[in-house]
Amino acid sequence: MATKAPRIERAKVIGTALALLDRYGIEGLTMRKLAQALQIQAPSLYWHFESKQSLIDGMADALVDAVARDLPEAQPWEERVRQVAVELRLALLQHRDGARVFAGTYVVTDNVLRTGEAMISAFMQAGADAELAATSSFTVTYYVLGLVMEEQALGPESTLDLAARKQTFLDSAREKYPHSWAAREAIFSEDFNARFETGLDLLIAGIKQRIVADHP
C-alpha cells in the first residue's frame, strides 16, 4: 500500500520558508529547497501555496504579524504614525530581504489591513479626508520599505564593495558635484536609526502642513 505524504501545517511551511530566506535570500529561496527542508515532496506544498508568489504573500503577511497590535486609544495621531512605522521597520528587519518580500505583494489579510487601518485612522484623526489619509499611509509605508531595502542591502550578506564606491564618489564629487561633496558625510552615514527618525519627522511635518492647507 502506498504511503501517504505527511500532512504539513501552513504555519510550519511559512516558518521554514522564513528560515531559508535568512540563509539564502529571496533569490535563493525555491520551492524545491523548501520541500527538502520540510522533508516532503514539492507537490505537497501546493496544497497551501500554488506558486512561489503565493508563498511570498504568506511570508509577507507573517512578517507584519506583530505590527499595530498594541495602540493606546488616546494616542496622538503623530505618535501613532511613528509607532506603526517603527514597528513595521523592525518587523521587516527581522528577516533577510524582509522589505523585498513585503514590497509589491498587495496582500489582503488581517495583519496587513490592521497595519494600514492604524495609519489611515491616525491621518483621519489629524483632519485628513479618506483619500489624503490613504495616500499618506502609502507614502509612509513606501518610505519604510525603501529605507529598509537600503539598510538590508548594506547588511552582513552584502557583496557590495562600499569602500570602493565611496572613494569613486569622493573623487567625482570633489571635482564636479559641490553640493554632494558638502553632504558626503550624510550620504555615506550608516546610522540608519537617525536617518529613519529624521525622514519620518519630515514626512509627518509635511503631511500635517498639507492637512492644514486643505482645511484652513
Results as ranks from 00 to 15, higher is better:
residue 110 D to M: 06
residue 192 F to P: 04
residue 108 V to G: 02
residue 119 M to E: 03
residue 194 A to E: 14
residue 137 S to G: 13
residue 139 T to R: 05
residue 140 V to K: 07
residue 189 S to T: 07
residue 106 Y to S: 06
residue 169 F to H: 06
residue 162 L to E: 11
residue 201 D to V: 10
residue 197 E to H: 11
residue 184 R to D: 02
residue 120 I to K: 11
residue 193 N to G: 15
residue 106 Y to A: 07
residue 122 A to I: 04
residue 138 F to V: 15
residue 148 V to Y: 05
residue 149 M to C: 11
residue 170 L to C: 08
residue 138 F to W: 14
residue 120 I to P: 00
residue 163 A to F: 01
residue 161 D to L: 05
residue 112 V to E: 09
residue 124 M to N: 06
residue 137 S to H: 13
residue 173 A to H: 05
residue 171 D to E: 14
residue 147 L to C: 10
residue 122 A to W: 04
residue 109 T to F: 02
residue 139 T to C: 09
residue 175 E to L: 14
residue 174 R to W: 10
residue 147 L to Y: 01
residue 165 R to D: 11
residue 197 E to N: 14
residue 179 H to F: 13
residue 133 A to V: 05
residue 198 T to P: 00
residue 160 L to G: 01
residue 114 R to C: 12
residue 119 M to P: 01
residue 187 I to L: 14
residue 157 E to S: 15
residue 189 S to V: 01
residue 165 R to C: 09
residue 176 K to D: 09
residue 167 Q to R: 13
residue 171 D to W: 08
residue 127 G to L: 03
residue 124 M to A: 02
residue 128 A to W: 02
residue 132 L to D: 05
residue 165 R to H: 15
residue 123 F to Y: 15
residue 133 A to D: 07
residue 124 M to K: 10
residue 158 S to H: 03
residue 144 V to H: 02
residue 128 A to P: 06
residue 121 S to Q: 12
residue 117 E to P: 00
residue 112 V to C: 07
residue 176 K to A: 09
residue 184 R to A: 03
residue 192 F to L: 00
residue 156 P to D: 02
residue 193 N to K: 08
residue 198 T to A: 12
residue 127 G to N: 01
residue 188 F to L: 00
residue 138 F to E: 12
residue 113 L to W: 06
residue 147 L to T: 04
residue 127 G to H: 04
residue 106 Y to N: 12
residue 132 L to F: 03
residue 110 D to R: 12
residue 125 Q to P: 00
residue 167 Q to K: 13
residue 192 F to A: 02
residue 195 R to W: 07
residue 109 T to D: 03
residue 131 E to F: 11
residue 124 M to F: 02
residue 161 D to F: 06
residue 155 G to F: 08
residue 133 A to M: 08
residue 113 L to Q: 14
residue 129 D to R: 00
residue 191 D to I: 05
residue 133 A to W: 06
residue 115 T to L: 15
residue 147 L to P: 09
residue 175 E to A: 14
residue 181 W to H: 14
residue 175 E to P: 01
residue 196 F to Y: 11
residue 122 A to D: 01
residue 181 W to R: 05
residue 159 T to F: 00
residue 152 Q to V: 01
residue 178 P to H: 04
residue 127 G to Q: 09
residue 135 T to K: 10
residue 179 H to V: 08
residue 116 G to N: 13
residue 152 Q to F: 05
residue 120 I to V: 15
residue 107 V to S: 13
residue 136 S to W: 04
residue 172 S to H: 14
residue 152 Q to K: 07
residue 109 T to K: 09
residue 161 D to E: 08
residue 151 E to D: 02
residue 124 M to G: 00
residue 163 A to P: 03
residue 187 I to A: 08
residue 159 T to Y: 01
residue 195 R to N: 06
residue 200 L to Y: 07
